[in-house]
C-alpha cells in the first residue's frame, strides 16, 4: 500500500503550496494597497502554519 503514501505526499505538497500562494498573495495585496512591506512575510507565515495545521488534521490526527 505504498500508493497511499505517494498520494499523501503529493497532497501535502499541494496544501503547502496553496497555503503559501493564497495567504502570501493576500499579504502581497495588502502590501500594495497599504504601501507597507511586511505583510507579505506575515502572509507567508500564516499560510505555512495554516497548511501545516491542515496537514495535521488530515494525516497526523490518529
Amino acid at each position: 500500500m505504498a500508493k497511499r503514501e505517494e498520494s499523501a505526499m503529493w497532497s501535502i505538497f499541494g496544501y503547502l503550496l496553496s497555503g503559501l500562494l493564497f495567504w502570501g498573495g493576500v499579504g502581497y495585496g495588502l502590501d500594495h494597497w497599504l504601501g507597507k512591506s511586511y505583510f507579505t512575510l506575515i502572509g507567508l507565515l500564516v499560510g505555512v502554519s495554516g497548511a501545516i495545521y491542515l496537514v495535521w488534521l488530515r494525516f497526523g490526527r490518529e
Binding site: Y15, L17, S18, F22, G50
Partner: peptide
C-alpha cells in the same frame, strides 16, 4: 474559527493546485 484559515486552502488545493501540479 479555523475555517477562515483552512477553507481557502482546501478550495485552492482542490480546484487549482492539484490539476496544475
Amino acid at each position: 474559527a479555523a475555517y477562515i484559515l483552512i477553507t481557502p486552502l482546501e478550495i485552492l488545493t482542490f480546484f487549482v493546485v492539484r490539476p496544475l501540479t
